[in-house]
Structure formats: C-alpha cells, structure tokens
C-alpha cells in the first residue's frame, strides 16, 4: 500500500447550528485519484475549505504525512504543497493570464528587494523563466490559450478561465491537488480533453494525489481510483465507483429519499 499523505480524523465544521461536515474520517494516499461526490450542499466544498485553512474546523484534526496541520493558515497549507481550484472561479480578472499563473508559483519566486527593484537584469531572467514555464504548461492544455498569455483574464471565455485556474494550481507542482468542479460549464469533449491532460500530468508526476469534486458520474467512474460519497456532511460510502454506485444508501441520498 502506498503511504497516506492526507488524513482527517473526525473533522467537523459548523455554521451556527448547521454541521456542514460531521466527524469526517478520510484518507488519501500518494498518487491516488479520489473522486468526492455527494448531492448539493453535502459539504464537499466545505471539506476543501477546511483542508486549506479557509474555514477553521470546530473539532477534529487534519494530518499531512502524519503531521498535524489542523487550523493552519491558507499560506501555510500552500507551503505544504496543497493547491486548489475554486468552485466559483477566483482568478484576478483584470490581470493577464501570465500574471495569474505566476501568482500560483509564489513558492518559486524571489521576493528580495534588491532583485525586484534594483537588479532588474536578474529579475528579467527570472521573469523569462517564469514565462516559459507558464507558456509550456498552458500549451499542454490548449495551444490557443497559450497564445493568450498576455491578454487579461477578463477577455477569456469561461472555459479558458477554468483551464487557467487548473494551471494556476498545477504550476507550483503541488503534492496534493484539490479540484472543485473544474469542468463545470464545459462540453463533454472539452471535459475529456481537460481530464486527459490531467492524467498525462499525473503520469509525469506519479506522486501527485488528487481529489476531484464532480457531479458527472461517468467522469468519476472513468478517472477516479476510489471515491467518497458525502451526504449532510457525513461520509456515507467509500470505495470503487462501481461498488459505491450500487449502494442503496447512496442512491437514496441522490434521489432525496431518507
């Protein structure tokens, strides 16, 4: 068995009286591709937010490689090598595509005062390197998009914005990637292309562990190793998609029966 990279123990997040996550136990292994599914409002996004330090859990713990990181700030979580996309796109729309991608690569930027303001030659070299990385990454996903590197994100189509968001999460070569409905609004063909690229990337980075939130069951079936089903903040099933999908409790949750 591959080592566990991420683990939560009885993780609970509540908003007032509502328990958006209730005592969730969860494990993710190196290189694993995990599908996270569940009806609307079941706490999937909340789970990502709790992992990345945006919401602070009411109780329970998060472990990364066995080290407790519960309540770590979002910056810390990024430094640990966890990146994400957002369900509702959160790009800096007035900035260029390049700027947005470079923002994602914070870890590898030099923030020295001297280099940034005075030694512009060295800054130029770093910029050139970042630009090449960004361009190479974008052109994996879409050649046309790579040509829009210097255009503001606001001029991009929704689909391209999604791609940019995925690239922003990938550019720093994270250890754990959290994708929150990245293909929302895409046609099946576009979705397939995006997933193919992701699989390709995973081949080159075999240690990368991924959690994908997705409503399209076909897709989950195709790409995920295992999946976890949430309902009302609780885990109601776990395992291979084909096993999970036949469970009565899961069907009931999706059909709204109790």
């Amino acid at each position: 068995m591959r080592p566990v990279v991420l683990k939560t123990v009885e993780l609970t997040v509540s908003f007032g009286g509502l328990k958006a996550l209730n005592c969730l136990d969860f494990e993710l292994c190196e290189g694993q591709f995990l599908g996270l599914i569940g009806p609307n409002g079941s706490g999937k996004t909340t789970f990502f937010n709790a992992l990345t330090g945006i919401y602070s859990p009411a109780s329970g713990n998060v472990f990364l490689y066995g080290e407790k990181i519960t309540g770590a700030s979002p910056n810390k979580v990024y430094d640990y090598g966890i990146t994400r996309t957002f369900q509702r796109s959160r790009l800096a729309t007035p900035l260029s595509v390049l700027d947005n991608l470079i923002i994602g690569n914070q870890r590898n930027l030099n923030f020295g005062l001297w280099q940034n303001i005075f030694d512009r030659k060295r800054f130029k070299a770093e910029l050139k390197k970042q630009t090449e990385i960004a361009e190479a990454l974008l052109s994996r996903f879409s050649r046309d998009l790579a040509a829009l590197l210097f255009k503001p994100v606001s001029s991009l189509s929704m689909i391209d914005r999604r791609r940019v968001e995925v690239c922003r999460a990938l550019i720093s070569e994270p250890k754990i990637l959290l994708l929150d409905e990245p293909s929302a609004g895409m046609t099946p063909d576009e979705t397939r292309a995006l997933m193919d690229e992701l699989q390709d990337w995973r081949k080159q980075h075999p240690l990368l562990a991924t959690i994908l939130i997705e409503h399209e069951m076909e897709l989950i079936n195709k790409v995920s190793d295992t999946c976890v089903v949430l309902n009302y903040g609780e885990k109601i099933a776990e395992g291979r998609y084909s096993d999970v999908a036949t469970k009565t409790s899961v069907r009931a949750a999706y059909l709204g029966e109790d």
Partner: peptide, 29 residues
C-alpha cells in the same frame, strides 16, 4: 519607485491581494 514596484513581484502580489484575498492566501501570498 512606484513604477518599479508595479513591474515586479511586489506589484503583482499587491494586485492579487487587492483583487481576491482568499485566492491570494490560498496561493501562499
């Protein structure tokens, strides 16, 4: 100085902070 700040990672990060604090923090800013 203002122009140099704008044309460096400093300006980039400041812009990012202005436009979206949640996203900025999630990318280590």
């Amino acid at each position: 100085l203002t122009r140099l700040i704008e044309a460096s990672w400093f300006g980039l990060n400041m812009d990012s902070v202005r436009l979206d604090e949640v996203a900025s923090a999630s990318f280590g800013i």
